[in-house]
């Protein structure tokens, strides 16, 4: 990947709302070059989407997030991809990863209530034949998400003018 493409991935992964003009200024290139590079990154499946980091506690009291650990038993006809395909299509599933360690899949589930999330796990996930066990952890407080710290942040205490 060339420098411009790489820089754009870095910049957009931190802040995807910057204008094409500003991205061009920051990378010492033209707006056309930036536009073209972003198109390529999208077409090549590097940039898959652009989302906001939201502090849901400021939006509603009815937002619940849970981590779900999932264990599976595979056989000759069924591999991890087969199982993942049956899980990932649910809109409640925000994130699905295969991980090393004590369990196989790690899920992030979002819903409007603990009851809803619990029911989703028991009715939709746990019933998949290959799945042998699920462990659900409800998120109680979020301090940092995708590199963004929650809370008011610190004031700039520097002197306004210094040598």
């Amino acid at each position: 990947m060339d420098k411009l493409h790489r820089d754009l991935v870095d910049l957009l992964s931190k802040d995807a709302r910057q204008s094409t003009e500003d991205l061009a200024r920051m990378t010492d290139s033209t707006a056309e070059e930036v536009e073209e590079a972003i198109d390529e990154l999208e077409e090549d499946g590097v940039l898959l989407g652009y989302q906001a980091v939201v502090d849901w506690t400021e939006v509603t009291d009815d937002h619940v997030e849970a981590y779900v650990e999932v264990n599976v038993a595979l056989d000759r006809e069924t591999d991890y991809t087969d199982v993942s395909e049956r899980i990932q299509s649910y809109p409640e599933v925000q994130r699905l990863t295969l991980v090393s360690g004590n369990y196989d899949f790690g899920l992030v589930i979002q819903g409007d209530s603990m009851n809803e999330v619990s029911r989703f796990v028991s009715d939709k996930i746990a019933v998949i034949p290959e799945i042998t066990q699920t462990v659900t952890h409800f998120v109680m407080e979020t301090y940092k998400d995708r590199g963004v710290e929650f809370g008011d942040g610190d004031d700039d205490e520097r002197l306004s003018v210094s040598p």
């Binding site: 700039d156 520097r158 002197l159 306004s160 003018v161 210094s162 040598p163």
Partner: peptide
């Protein structure tokens, strides 16, 4: 420094240290 401290809503490009 004194002028800048007195003014409101100042964006400072006068700082000689990292942010």
């Amino acid at each position: 420094f004194e002028l800048a401290e007195e003014a409101d809503d100042v964006i400072s490009l006068g700082v000689g240290e990292p942010d």
